[in-house]
Design a protein around this nucleic acid. Sequence first.
DNA 1: CACCCGGAGTTCCGTAAGGGAACCCCGAAG
DNA 2: CTTCGGGGTTCCCTTACGGAACTCCGGGTG
Lengths: 150, 150
Amino acid sequence: MQRTQFGEMACSIARTLDVIGEPWSPLILRDVWVGLSRFDQLQADLGISRKVLTERLGHLVEQGVLERHPYDNRPRYEYRLTAKGAELVDLLMVMTAWGDRWLAGEAGPPVLYRHHACGEIAAVDLRCDHCGEPMHAGDVDPLAGPGSAP
Amino acid sequence: MQRTQFGEMACSIARTLDVIGEPWSPLILRDVWVGLSRFDQLQADLGISRKVLTERLGHLVEQGVLERHPYDNRPRYEYRLTAKGAELVDLLMVMTAWGDRWLAGEAGPPVLYRHHACGEIAAVDLRCDHCGEPMHAGDVDPLAGPGSAP
DNA sequence: CACCCGGAGTTCCGTAAGGGAACCCCGAAG
DNA sequence: CTTCGGGGTTCCCTTACGGAACTCCGGGTG
């Protein structure tokens, strides 16, 4: 008996969860994204147990989302986002947008993002990569794709 | 001693995780989104333990993401997305896009999405809600927002 | 050279959460 | 009045998290 593995399912959501779905993983990614890159920094910022942090970092490196590499002659390492990991930041931005909208309350969002292109405080918006029109829950029909059959 | 609650953190990502970050929750949302709405349907489709499914549904309803309501004179219930929950589908679409791109492999994506507006098979793309330009990992600077202080 | 330091983990134990299967409740249909 | 099926509960077992202590290792400092 073991915990269910989502990676085996024919579903990109489940497979993505297999990479960053474990507790803490998205927060680790967030920290690395904003520049916290060393073990002790992450541990202190998150308050995560060192054991679990070790496991998560190992998994994220294994999945090609983070890269561990030395920054000193001593055995010191820092973690960086790979290209694969940087694209996961899209996910973080959408989570941020949703949390800002539905959970921030009176106080307002804890963090704001300034968009380089326009210089404004902004949030993300989902568009169709084909026609550029908005793309949300009710705007699509799911169809079986090539990777669906056994 | 108890499991760490992310909801207390001053971070919209952490707070969002408190709502849908538990194992299975995103997959439950996906199923409800595509039309599986009854307890036994969800249980059979996901292979989740009934105990955990009960807990997750309860939590999602409590958080206002799902609505439980009767569909018969008998004690029968179905779960539906609320407006708050429907906006979480954005998150699922971004997870799908990332999984399709990085994890689908040779076989291709298991599910395709046809966009109503243009009729094409499409994926989501993240844009700035201000200027409409692309908005990804390197395109923003985080600043402290109003909800950041202790 | 002996000692200490700080980063990066590893080990160990107690509690809590997931997996699985069996059981229960309830209203309708036979 | 028994059966059926949806919608959960209950119980036990195993795995995983939290927390604190311990280890390892290379570089300064006296």
